[in-house]
Each structure stands twice: as structure tokens, then as C-alpha cells.
């Protein structure tokens, strides 16, 4: 797609969309949203970028290796955080009783492991969306060039 208008608008909009996505991820425990929704927003912004420019520009911003790493990393982080509670002598995925600091309710850095879980889920979901889209489009490009 080679459209100047789309590109300029995209360049303007994408940072704000990403900022909003990060806001939704990090404020999951304070306001509606959370890892899933925020991750999807961030992932959608990356897809939007790749759609408006091209795939190479998109994968320069987020390479395949990094995306794979983020994808596994988010899920692994979730499980490891659960194991931390177990090492502290509580059951898997325990939050308060395992001694994660709850902080003052209403602050950004509060509610212990929930903040961490949201971020992990956000990473996971965002990179999942990107990976899926890139691979689908990439496959079709290869397919078309071979024909």
C-alpha cells in the first residue's frame, strides 16, 4: 500500500495508540482493562503500522526473534511468578499471603503480583497478535512470488 495520507496519519496515530495500550496494561488493577485488552491494543497498533508501511518496516521495529522471545517470555514470566509464591512457602499463584507488597490501593505500583501478571499477559498477547499477522502476510507474499 503506497498512500501518503495513510502513512502520515499512521505515523501520527500509532504512538498514541501504543501509549493508550500501555496505559490499559499497566492500569489493569485500577481501571477497566488489563493485560488482554491492552496487549490487543498494542498488537493492533503494530499491525496497523505494518499495514500502512510494509512488512519490512514492521519487522524492523519488532523482529521475529524478539517477538518469539516476548511471546514465550510473557507466559514464562507468569508461571515463574507463580513459582515464586511457592518458594515463599505458599500455594501456586498466591499473591497477598506470599508476601507480595500490596501497597496503597489506588497507586500505580500496588496490588503485588497482579501488576506483574498484567504486564506479562500484555507482552504475551501483544506479541501474539503481531506474530500471527506477520506470519500470515509473509506466507502469502512468498506464495504470490512463487506463482
Amino acid at each position: 500500500m503506497e498512500d501518503l495520507l495513510v502513512r502520515i496519519i499512521c505515523r501520527l496515530v500509532v504512538p498514541f495508540v501504543q501509549l493508550y495500550g500501555l496505559y490499559v496494561i499497566t492500569h489493569g488493577h485500577l481501571s477497566p482493562g488489563g493485560g488482554f485488552a491492552g496487549g490487543a491494543i498494542v498488537g493492533a497498533s503494530m499491525i496497523l503500522f505494518a499495514l500502512a508501511f510494509n512488512l519490512e518496516a514492521g519487522s524492523r521495529k519488532l523482529s521475529h526473534d524478539i517477538s518469539l522471545l516476548m511471546e514465550s517470555g510473557g507466559a514464562i514470566g507468569f508461571i515463574l511468578a507463580g513459582f515464586v509464591a511457592m518458594l515463599l512457602g505458599q500455594n501456586f499463584l498466591t499473591n497477598k499471603a506470599a508476601g507480595f507488597p500490596l501497597g496503597v490501593p489506588g497507586n500505580l505500583f500496588s496490588s503485588g503480583a497482579i501488576f506483574f501478571f498484567s504486564v506479562a499477559i500484555g507482552f504475551k498477547v501483544g506479541s501474539t497478535m503481531c506474530t500471527l499477522f506477520y506470519n500470515l502476510i509473509e506466507g502469502s507474499d512468498r506464495h504470490r512470488s512463487s506463482e
Binding site: 514465550s72 514464562i76 508461571i79 515463574l80 507463580g82 511457592m86
Partner: peptide, 20 residues
């Protein structure tokens, strides 16, 4: 008593690690 959840979690962990 932690073993069942460790089984599930470790299998998932191995599955997530495998592509890397």
C-alpha cells in the same frame, strides 16, 4: 501436595521454552 500443580506448570513451562 504441590506436585500436581508443579506437573502442570512445568509441562507448560517446557512447552513455552521449546520454540526458543
Amino acid at each position: 501436595e504441590h506436585l500436581p500443580v508443579i506437573i502442570v506448570a512445568l509441562l507448560l513451562l517446557a512447552a513455552f521454552l521449546e520454540p526458543i
